[in-house]
Design a protein around this nucleic acid. Structure first.
Length: 261
DNA sequence: ATGGTTGACTTTCAA
């Protein structure tokens, strides 16, 4: 079972680029972030006609997540537990049944800028709720993957120019500590499991501004966390960097992990 | 060089 994540930065603007990428990936399951669409306006039939089962959790204008699958989906839930007053659409879960059942959580973690302020407070509060949900997923003792746009630069080597990010919500010590606390529950970060000693990158995001892509001035903020039962099944993982070089690209590229499941 | 670009959806915010 190949599982991928892609922050598409608007499904309407990205329908061609997303369709082209889906056509050449051999993923079985794809989680999407920043669909920037309400459920009723999502081009569901376009993707269903391409063979995908489509589950969305959208909102007007911003945010919004989705799961596409070519395998059966069960027990779909929308929203991150822990705050009934939270109206931002950033989290969706489903169980995908291949040779084995895998619980998939697709997430779009808050950006948190500017710091300090209510947006940063919301980011940290959201991460605390994610920590609690992550512990519940681990307690299931089944293959589980939490993946998406974490808006966290875990370490200096995950940025081409780390000094540019020292005051940014993506790289502040409190943000990184909250991410590390979740990891230390027992999750395995897929990319680092493949390449634990890598010195720089691989990057998953390049700003549209200031020629960041042409200078390879990127950061690694899209992550895949595997439960121990999922980590035991990992066969390969990677980043589809070429997606940033196409026509009208997203500012993120897809990341993926292959499980023996 | 304190800029620059993109998307959704409106005269501006979010990233």
């Amino acid at each position: 079972m190949k599982i991928a994540s892609f922050n598409i930065n608007g499904v309407k603007a990205r329908i061609q680029a997303l369709t082209d990428w889906l056509d050449q990936t051999d993923a079985d399951v794809v989680v999407l972030q920043e669909i920037k669409s309400i459920d009723e306006a999502f081009p569901r039939e376009h993707f269903e006609d391409l063979g995908w089962m489509v589950e969305t959790h959208g909102q007007k204008g911003f945010n919004g997540v989705a799961i596409f699958s070519k395998l059966p989906l069960e027990d779909v839930t929308r929203g991150l537990p822990g705050d009934d007053s939270d109206e931002q659409a950033r989290y969706i879960e489903a169980t995908v049944v291949g040779d084995k059942a895998v619980r998939i959580a697709g997430l779009y973690l808050p950006n948190g800028n500017p710091v300090p302020g209510p947006k940063y407070d919301y980011k940290l509060a959201w991460m605390e709720r994610l920590r609690l949900r992550a512990a519940e997923l681990l307690a299931m003792e089944m293959p589980a993957v939490m993946l998406g746009d974490y808006n966290i630069i875990p370490e200096a080597r995950d940025a081409a120019s780390p000094q540019k990010w020292v005051d940014d919500a993506l790289f502040l010590p409190e943000s990184r500590a909250a991410f590390r606390t979740i990891l230390n529950q027992g999750w395995t970060e897929a990319i680092r499991a493949r390449d634990p000693w890598g010195t720089r990158g691989p990057f998953t995001f390049w700003d549209y501004q200031a020629g960041a892509w042409n200078k390879d001035d990127g950061i690694r903020i899209d992550h895949m966390l595997l439960s121990p039962q999922a980590a035991d099944l990992m066969q390969d993982t990677g980043v589809d960097r070429d997606a940033r070089a196409g026509e009208k690209p997203s500012d993120h590229v897809p990341v993926w992990v292959l499980l023996d499941a």
